[in-house]
Simulated assay, not measured.
Amino acid sequence: MLISNAYAQASGAAADSLGGLMGMLPIVFMFIVLWFLMIRPQMRKAKEQQKMITELAKGDEVVTQGGIAGRISRLGENYLGLEVANSKEGAIEITVQKSAVAALLPKGSLKNL
C-alpha cells in the first residue's frame, strides 16, 4: 500500500461556502463605494445639464463646450441659433447643437466681455 486512502470531511464544506461569501465581500464593497463616489454624482450632473438644456429660451446668454459665448436668437428641436457678434451687415449667427451648450450665463454677461 503505497497510497493511503482519502476520506471526505463533513465540516470542510460548510467552512468553504462561508469563505466564498467572504471573498466576494470586498468586491461588493468596492462597487458600493464606486456607486456613491463616481456614478451617482455623474448621473445627477447629467440630469441637471438636461434640465438646463430643456429650459433654454430665446434671448438667454450661453457658453458652448467649445468656449463660444453668445445670445440665443432662435431655437429648434435639436439645434439653436447663437448670435456671437454684431457687424455692419447685421448680427453674426452660428448654428450649434443644443447639447453643446455648457453653461447658462447671467443676463448682461456678454456686455462685460
Rank of each mutant, 00 (worst) to 15 (best):
V63E: 06
G66W: 04
G19P: 06
A6C: 07
I39T: 09
K45I: 03
A102D: 10
I68W: 03
A6M: 07
A13R: 15
V33I: 15
L34G: 08
W35R: 14
K58A: 07
A10Q: 06
K47N: 10
G76C: 01
K88L: 11
E61H: 01
K88P: 03
R71E: 15
L105W: 03
Q42R: 12
S11T: 11
Q49W: 04
M52P: 01
S11K: 05
N86S: 14
T95E: 10
E83C: 09
G19D: 12
G19Y: 10
F36E: 11
T54Q: 14
L75T: 05
M22Y: 07
V28P: 01
V63M: 04
R71F: 00
I53W: 06
R44V: 14
T95W: 07
F29A: 13
E89M: 13
M22P: 00
D60R: 05
A100H: 02
G90K: 05
P41Q: 03
M1E: 10
Y79G: 02
V84D: 05
A8L: 06
E77I: 12
A91G: 07
L21V: 09
K111C: 03
F31W: 08
N86L: 13
L113N: 14
K107P: 02
F29K: 11
L21T: 09
A14M: 12
E77M: 05
G20D: 15
Q50Y: 08
I53G: 01
G19V: 08
L34K: 15
F36M: 11
K47P: 00
S109D: 04
S99H: 13
L75H: 03
E89A: 11
E83Y: 06
A10Y: 04
M52G: 05
A8M: 03
Y79L: 12
A15H: 11
P106I: 06
S73R: 14
F31K: 12
L80F: 07
S73G: 14
A8G: 13
V62N: 01
N86M: 12
A100Q: 09
K58I: 12
W35G: 02
A102L: 04
Y79S: 10
N5I: 03
I27W: 08
G59E: 05
E55N: 15
R44N: 09
Y79A: 05
E83K: 15
S73E: 13
A46S: 12
A69E: 08
R40S: 08
L113S: 15
R44Y: 06
S4M: 09
E77Q: 15
G23Y: 06
E55C: 11
G76T: 01
D16M: 14
A10C: 02
Q65G: 13
I68F: 06
Q50E: 15
S17L: 14
A69I: 01
Q50G: 05
A69G: 03
I68Q: 04
G67A: 02
I72D: 00
I32R: 06
Q49E: 07
A10T: 14
M43R: 10
S87Q: 08
I68A: 05
G59P: 04
M24N: 08
I27D: 11
Q97K: 15
V96F: 01
K111A: 15
N112T: 07
V63Y: 00
V63P: 01
I27M: 13
L75S: 10
L105F: 06
L104R: 15
I92S: 08
V62D: 00
